[in-house]
Simulated scan of single mutants.
Amino acid sequence: MTSLIEQAKQKAAYQAVDEHVLPSHRVIGVGSGSTVVHVVARLLQRDPELNAKTVFVPTSFQSRGLLLDGGLNVGDVDQYPDIDVTIDGADEVDSQLNAIKGGGGAHLQEKVVAEAAKKFVIVADYRKNSKILGEQWKQGVPIEVAPFAWRVVLVKIQNMGSKDAKLRMAVAKAGPVVTDNGNFLIDAPFGLIQDPANLLKDIKLITGVVEVGLFCNMAEIAYFGNEDGSVAIRTK
């Protein structure tokens, strides 16, 4: 089963890279997560001379490591605020290309790099393909919060209707997960999210919230690798 899922991720990632990373591109955003491993693998198969002329902007410690291990040129978004294309994974994507991201805790940097790009492309496997956000992804909307404010924010999120919202705790250590930016994470289930853009706005207005893992009206196209080896493409 795992190999089928990995093959699905690879199919989607390879096709997205082939169709959206052009020889003329000089700055490419590279997202985070398990599907992005295949994105980097495909980038490494490009003409080395093209890669030598290209800067790759990672969205997390993980993707930075993948790029550096591959010998690619790595830059920061503050150095390269104009990105040609960003390719990233997602935890779930709805019929309007709104997405939940942040299962890996990197959605602040992911959103900055996605918004800096002329084109934002999502790659995922069939398990992430939904009509409405919340159908498949049950863990909740990831919310990055300032550490000193997490309890205040949590109460407000619970009062907004996410009764089961909770601080994300680390697995291999005692205490909460800490993001690459030194913040905490709250996971807030809202059931089926009929209006993700409005929910994003409401959460973002809470003081102490740094970023919300709802990516609304950002992606131009999404690639989903299917179990049968095909790739489903969704556009607006």
Score class of each variant (00 low, 15 high):
Ser130Phe: 08
Pro142Thr: 02
Asn159Ala: 13
Lys166Asn: 12
Ile87Val: 14
Leu133Arg: 02
Glu92Met: 01
Lys101Glu: 03
Gln109Cys: 12
Pro147Gln: 12
Leu108Tyr: 13
Lys111Ala: 03
Lys166Asp: 12
Asp180Asn: 06
Gln136His: 05
Ala114Trp: 02
Gly105Gln: 03
Ala99Lys: 07
Val171Ser: 10
Pro81Gly: 09
Gly161Lys: 09
Asn159His: 09
Gln96Leu: 14
Val141Lys: 04
Leu154Ser: 13
Val113Glu: 09
Leu97His: 10
Glu110Cys: 04
Tyr126Glu: 14
Val178Trp: 05
Val178Phe: 04
Arg127Lys: 15
Lys101Ser: 07
Val155Ser: 11
Ala149Pro: 01
Ile100Asp: 05
Thr179Pro: 06
Lys163Cys: 02
Ala117Phe: 08
Arg168His: 03
Leu167Gly: 04
Gln96Cys: 13
Leu154His: 12
Ile87Met: 11
Arg151Met: 14
Tyr126Ile: 15
Gly103Val: 02
Ala172Trp: 09
Lys101Asp: 01
Asn159Cys: 07
Asn183Val: 00
Glu135His: 03
Lys163Gly: 01
Val123Ala: 12
Lys101Leu: 01
Pro147Leu: 10
Val112His: 07
Lys119Arg: 14
Gln79Arg: 12
Ser95Pro: 00
Glu92Pro: 00
Ala146Leu: 15
Ser162Phe: 10
Ile100Arg: 02
Ile186Tyr: 04
Ile157Thr: 06
Leu185Val: 03
Gln136Ser: 08
Gln158Gly: 04
Met160Leu: 13
Asp164Trp: 04
Ala174Cys: 04
Ala106Ile: 09
Glu115Phe: 11
Lys101Met: 05
Pro81Ser: 10
Asp78Cys: 12
Tyr126Arg: 13
Pro176Thr: 07
Val155Asn: 11
